[in-house]
Design a protein around this nucleic acid. Structure first.
Lengths: 238, 238
DNA sequence: GTCTATATCTGGATAGAC
DNA sequence: GTCTATCCAGATATAGAC
């Protein structure tokens, strides 16, 4: 699995990022288990983690094929080789299954991309870090982000608000860097709102259209460099 | 014909575009009816058009709230004030309802944006036209494009292929303009593949995130100018 | 052309044996 | 901890009266 990825990674940055952040296969599933421990009836940790992994991966696969709503729990039961009854000792309900996945994202995101707002670095460097970090993390956790992007519908109202808040956060955070850069005279003047949303859109595109980029044999390093170039041309002073 | 199109490139573009293209309210529903005439049991044209309009608009509203899959035909029956039986004289099946909407899009798109590949205009102008045309048309037919974007899952395999083909077409078309511009020495050299996909992503963003842009009080003219600026900075020669 | 009533099926969820 | 059997709500779709 890991070796598979290596050939399209190109530069070393990605590997460096990966090794500096708690997102090995094992760590992901452990974190996931810990986050939802209380909701799971099964007591043995080893068993629980192993089964959760199977369930979530099957969920990704099936939702990818027909969408979460059209995936029945009978489909899931077939795909995981578990009975309905057994499934329910892990997931509580179908809705909760979706929420468990959604909730994991801000959790792991914050673990991996530490708070940059207090950094003393230049605006340009903070922007660059955010972009690289975003592409890298969505590369590692592609299935999770893709699911979350496609299946926003299945959240309870509380979690929908949370998701929106996270969305807004990254947009406002981008806007802030841009206005900082402008204020510090590092960047040329641009429309912060449009610039922030456009960057966001380009970042999302990397995981939403992943198959297309794969077919075009684009590495994530190439993608980063391309959008950085695009952004720099907008904000650079002449 | 060619001269006609030119107008909506100058000032007051959007209104000019709108009046030069067959997408008034009336024309849309008439086209829609004509496209699907054979599948509809109701004979009287006036009745059929009026009801179809009600049905489709309700479908947009409800899918927007809960997604097409979660929208039951009972919901639709309630929203349209029509009985289940009556609905079925118009739609054939729930699946077909989705397909009718999807099929309409390439139909109307081709009516509004005529083939530009044979144009003798410069690559720069062709690119500009495509961008403006795309933003304008998705502005006029927002609900349709938004629905199609969100609800790709419900297509039959045949129509899924058709949708993919349309997707690919606009990407390849963009790539072609870019390489033409490069060949004709109008543009600087860029990665055509990445440039094409990025432009596409920015164009889609206009209708996918419409509410956000509305909240930020961004007009479509402002949006066009922003992304044109972004694109020009990438392709302009220094 | 539109309605009501109904047939039929599928999916989420649970109880209780093992 | 896992399985089988089953319940029941809600969905699509149709038949036949008006």
């Amino acid at each position: 699995m890991d070796g598979d990825q290596a050939h399209w990674l190109g530069e070393n940055d990605f590997n460096l990022f990966r090794s500096s952040v708690p997102i090995s296969e094992q760590e992901i599933w452990l974190s996931f288990y810990q986050l939802h421990k209380d909701k799971i009836q099964v007591q043995k940790q080893n068993v629980a983690i192993e089964k959760l992994k199977i369930i979530i991966q099957a969920t990704f696969k099936l939702s990818n094929q027909k969408g979460f709503t059209l995936m029945s729990l009978r489909d899931l039961s077939r795909e995981t080789n578990m009975s309905m009854g057994s499934l329910y000792t892990y997931i509580g309900s179908k809705g909760q299954l979706a929420e468990m996945i959604h909730q994991f994202l801000p959790h792991i995101f914050n673990l991996c991309i530490p708070d940059l707002s207090n950094s003393i670095k230049s605006a340009r460097e903070r922007l660059q870090r955010f972009i690289r970090g975003h592409v890298f993390i969505t590369e590692c956790l592609h299935d999770w982000f893709f699911f979350a992007f496609m299946e926003t519908k299945h959240l309870s109202r509380a979690n929908k608000k949370l998701a929106m808040k996270n969305e807004l956060n990254s947009e406002q955070w981008l806007e802030k860097i841009i206005s900082d850069g402008e204020r510090l005279n590092e960047f040329a003047s641009v429309d912060r709102f449009l610039m922030g949303l456009s960057i966001k859109s380009l970042l999302q595109n990397w995981y939403v259209k992943r198959t297309t980029y794969r077919q075009g044999k684009v590495t994530c390093e190439q993608y980063i460099q391309f959008i950085e170039q695009m952004i720099n041309k907008m904000i650079e002073k002449r």
